[in-house]
């Protein structure tokens, strides 16, 4: 073997573990998945035939899927707003000269360490037991029943729980970005007489554009993919009505895909939903990132 061949082999050996895992577990299943979504495949590996766009035609008339799609969009939009507003405000507070800011920062991150299923169950207990008992003792009728069994409030509670969990993480990104702004710029503005509010809107926010791009991307993809909290908190319930049919009022897309494929064993349709899910998520992320990038300025 020539030395050149030997070098090629070495390079290849370094990449081999990653390459194998990556191609076998992500790329091939992903491509197969797209192919399966055009067949009547039932997951058993038996002979399948090509059905064209039939699966897609069926899922776009499926009230449950369309409803999941819409509430996932709603959930994502609300979540992106609440998580980022809360995280940004907190990040301003914990980067001020306030006492104990490091302790606060560490504490605010704690919800992120807890698994989705664990915090989902804990919040489920809080919403279905603690809040009603407080509501009853105070005589507040709005709180006396669980907010999770009411189809009008269930999405709001999901957004609340997700904001509670995720704001601490996004806060860290904003904090890192605020700390990266050079002190001299802010001091110069202060000397020039810029008030606190002006310094934030005219200097800090424009200089933090990169952090906004990242944070919005993370919240957007995270909300869109939401699964474990959904399962533990509501498992899709309660029942609501959509297009004249009963649907699961809080069943987000990920849970809907899971139910179709593995509960109802409808693999091909589940996979078609997954393809739509992927395409929509990709389009949204690209739009969001390119829009935000166009707003970024160089410091």
């Amino acid at each position: 073997m020539s030395s050149k061949q030997k070098r090629k082999l070495t390079e290849f050996l370094f990449l081999l573990p990653t390459l194998i895992a990556f191609v076998m577990v992500i790329i091939i299943p992903f491509i197969y998945g797209i192919y399966y979504s055009f067949t009547d495949w039932q997951g058993t590996g038996a002979a399948t035939k090509n059905v064209g766009f039939d699966n897609y035609a069926v899922i776009f008339q499926d009230a449950g899927f369309l409803h999941s799609f819409l509430i996932t969009l709603l959930f994502t939009v609300l979540n992106v707003i609440t998580v980022n507003v809360v995280a940004f405000v907190i990040s301003l507070l914990v980067t001020s000269e306030i006492r104990g800011r490091n302790v606060y920062r560490a504490g605010f991150f704690v919800p992120n360490l807890i698994g989705g299923i664990v915090l989902g169950l804990v919040w489920q207990f809080i919403f279905s037991n603690i809040l009603p008992s407080i509501g009853q003792s105070l005589g507040w009728s709005a709180l006396s029943k669980s907010l999770l069994t009411n189809k009008d409030t269930v999405m709001g509670t999901m957004v609340t729980v997700n904001t509670w969990q995720y704001a601490g993480y996004i806060m860290l990104i904003y904090v890192a970005s605020i700390q990266g702004i050079s002190k001299s710029v802010l001091e110069a503005a202060e000397v020039d007489g810029a008030r606190y509010w002006t310094r934030i809107t005219k200097i800090q926010i424009p200089l933090m554009a990169n952090a906004f791009t990242i944070s919005l991307f993370l919240t957007l993809t995270n909300s869109f993919k939401m699964y474990d909290v959904n399962v533990a908190l509501t498992n899709g319930g309660p029942v609501g009505m959509f297009m004249g049919k009963p649907v699961q009022a809080s069943e987000l897309l990920a849970l809907n895909i899971y139910q179709t494929a593995f509960k109802y064993n409808n693999m091909a349709q589940g996979q078609a939903k997954a393809v739509i899910f992927f395409v929509v998520l990709t389009i949204f992320s690209i739009i969001q990132v390119s829009y935000n990038k166009s707003k970024e300025v160089e410091a």
Binding site: V25, I26, I28, P29, F30, Y32, G33, Y36, G43, T221, K225, Y227, L253, A254, I257, Y258, A261, M267, G270, Q271, A274, V275, F277, F278, L281
Partner: peptide, 8 residues
């Protein structure tokens, strides 16, 4: 996302 690969 893992959802896009989980069935296959």
């Amino acid at each position: 996302p893992i959802h896009a690969a989980i069935v296959p």
